[in-house]
Amino acid sequence: MAEPIWTGPAVAVVTLFDEKGRLLAAETGAHAARLVAAGMRAVVVAGSTGEAATLTDPERAELVAAVRAACPGVPVLAGSSGEWYGMAVERTAAVLEAGADAVLVAPPRLGGDLAVYYDRVAEAAAGAPVLAYHYPGVAGGPVPVDALAGLPVQGIKDSSAEPARLAKEIELGGKAVYTGAAALLGYAAWLGATGAIVAAGNLVPTECLAAWAGDAGAQREVARAEAAYKARPGGLKAALAEVHGTAPTRRLG
């Protein structure tokens, strides 16, 4: 397996918008920098937590540039999925030009030839790492475990929260495996996953790090925090606004 881009917990960072829904790129960068200072080992921009489906391509590039400038010491990954490979190729090239170190790419929602799709994305990445993204129903279509070994990707983010699937991905070998499920931080580390990319890192970064290190109490605290913010619409941004004074506006819902 190639050397992973990072190991341990990373944050799937929220995208901040003002009260009229306009992008707050610099403010998002400042929030990401706060999380890096707390110990998050990488930042993922324009993922599902970052409301990527609402971003224009210029906004996506602006956001990547702002977070890259604010977080010089860690890898910055950007979502660059598309409903066909042409969209994903254009987005991949654009976010890498804007300063991303790697890309996170879900398959098209309506399926297709995954090998061709990821081949084209890997060509556009021109050597930069590509991570597949498995979160069907939320971010594109599925990445079958049986197909993963043959795809030209460095690894996968698996947000399915399925322990058995995670174990199969790790058992494959040759690919970095990142869980996207905050509830599985301790389990994933124990099992031998490469790391994690979690939305809960926006709110409880130190607890996420401790859970990854094997602290069962911290894992329970992460689960409680996640359950609390998921219990209300826009709960994560609302909780962040209460703690840090960041903008609570969402474009989705």
Rank of each mutant, 00 (worst) to 15 (best):
E3M: 10
E3A: 15
E3Q: 14
P4I: 10
I5Y: 01
P9V: 12
V11G: 06
V13I: 15
V14H: 09
F17V: 03
D18R: 11
D18W: 13
R22M: 04
A25F: 08
G29Q: 10
G29Y: 11
H31W: 05
H31I: 06
A32W: 10
A33H: 12
M40L: 13
M40S: 11
R41V: 03
A42T: 10
V44Y: 07
V44A: 14
V45S: 05
A46W: 03
S48E: 11
S48N: 13
G50Y: 01
T54D: 01
T56N: 05
P58V: 06
R60N: 05
A61I: 03
E62R: 14
L63M: 07
R68K: 15
A69N: 00
A70G: 07
L77Q: 00
A78M: 03
S81F: 04
G82A: 03
G82M: 01
W84G: 10
W84Q: 13
W84M: 10
Y85F: 11
Y85C: 02
Y85W: 14
G86F: 00
M87L: 14
M87S: 11
A88R: 00
E90R: 15
E90V: 06
A94Q: 09
A94C: 01
V95K: 00
A98N: 01
G99M: 05
A102V: 08
A102M: 07
A102H: 06
L104H: 09
V105I: 13
P107V: 06
R109T: 14
R109H: 12
R109D: 08
L110F: 14
V116A: 14
V116W: 03
D119N: 13
D119R: 14
E123Y: 01
A124M: 02
A128R: 15
A128W: 06
P129C: 10
V130A: 01
Y133F: 14
H134P: 03
G137Q: 00
G137S: 06
G140T: 10
G141A: 07
P142M: 08
V143I: 15
P144K: 05
G150R: 08
L151F: 07
V153A: 10
D158F: 03
S159W: 03
E162V: 13
E162W: 12
P163Q: 08
P163L: 12
A164K: 09
A164N: 07
K168F: 01
K168M: 13
K168C: 08
K175S: 13
K175H: 14
Y178S: 09
A181V: 02
A181K: 01
A183F: 07
L185Q: 11
Y187E: 12
A188W: 03
L191G: 04
G192Q: 12
I197W: 02
A200P: 04
A200M: 06
G201P: 12
N202G: 13
N202L: 13
V204M: 10
P205Y: 06
T206R: 15
E207A: 14
G217F: 09
V222W: 12
A225R: 04
A227F: 05
Y229K: 11
R232I: 14
G234I: 07
G234Q: 09
L236G: 09
A238Y: 00
A239T: 07
A239H: 08
A241F: 05
H244D: 15
